[in-house]
């Protein structure tokens, strides 16, 4: 693990450290699941960040007002409380709305596993305690066969482990890893750079 200087300040939005995630998974096989599916734009008319889970995947979850789609993964009773989402390739593409990871963490998710995770969504997730785990497509497909296996994601080791002993490593930069392990965020780090910023402004950006 990397030690950062200056130290990071606690992020009240994350609150908890993310060291290890152990859970069965919810599977969404579709590829290119965009942020308009994760949370449709009409639910963005809010000035709050809490409570968005009830709008997550809204248009897939409900057949009509108050009538849930029983086929949809997040409506199936066996999936209640699961913290890991296994999703098709290119998850989180589309708009930069941070409401997407807010909605997913409010649903109780702690990690998204896919063979490709869109850039902005990935960055937004890491800032909100949702771990993006990118594995090879074949490995994601294998995991999708067995959603009832209790998977373990170890942030310090950058590993996803299965009960039958398979270990998949995933990329996670040291900085994001530190933020997750310590439950801290980037803003404190940036604030501590104020002298560097002031120097830059004096010469470049008056």
């Amino acid at each position: 693990m990397t030690t950062l200087s200056p130290p990071l300040s606690q992020n009240p939005a994350i609150q908890a450290r993310t060291v290890q995630i152990s859970s069965r998974s919810v599977v969404l096989r579709s590829t290119n699941i965009d942020t308009d599916q994760i949370i449709p734009a009409r639910f963005l008319s809010t000035t709050e960040r809490a409570g968005l889970g009830r709008f997550a995947f809204n248009d897939w979850r409900w057949i009509s007002e108050g009538v849930p789609n029983p086929e949809f993964a997040f409506n199936r009773p066996e999936n209640a409380g699961r913290q890991i989402l296994l999703a098709g390739r290119n998850f989180g593409c589309g708009s930069s709305r941070e409401h997407a990871p807010w909605a997913l963490t409010d649903l109780g998710l702690k990690a998204v596993v896919s063979s490709e995770i869109a850039d902005i969504f990935r960055g937004n997730s890491l800032k909100n305690g949702l771990l993006p785990v990118v594995l090879d497509e074949a490995d994601v497909q294998t995991l999708m066969q067995r959603p009832d296996d209790e998977l373990t994601i170890d942030v310090a080791a950058r590993e996803l482990r299965t009960p039958d002993g398979r270990i998949y490593t995933f990329p996670l930069d040291g900085f994001s890893q530190t933020c997750l392990l310590e439950g801290v965020d980037q803003l404190g780090y940036l604030l501590a750079r104020a002298p560097d910023i002031a120097r830059y402004e004096a010469t470049h950006a008056r």
Binding site: E98, I120, N124, K127, L187, L190, E201
Partner: peptide
Amino acid sequence: FGIGTSEVGHVLATQCLLQR
């Protein structure tokens, strides 16, 4: 480029962003 709301906060507070 586009940023998320946390980053909007970063830029408001520091006029900077952390970027790879």
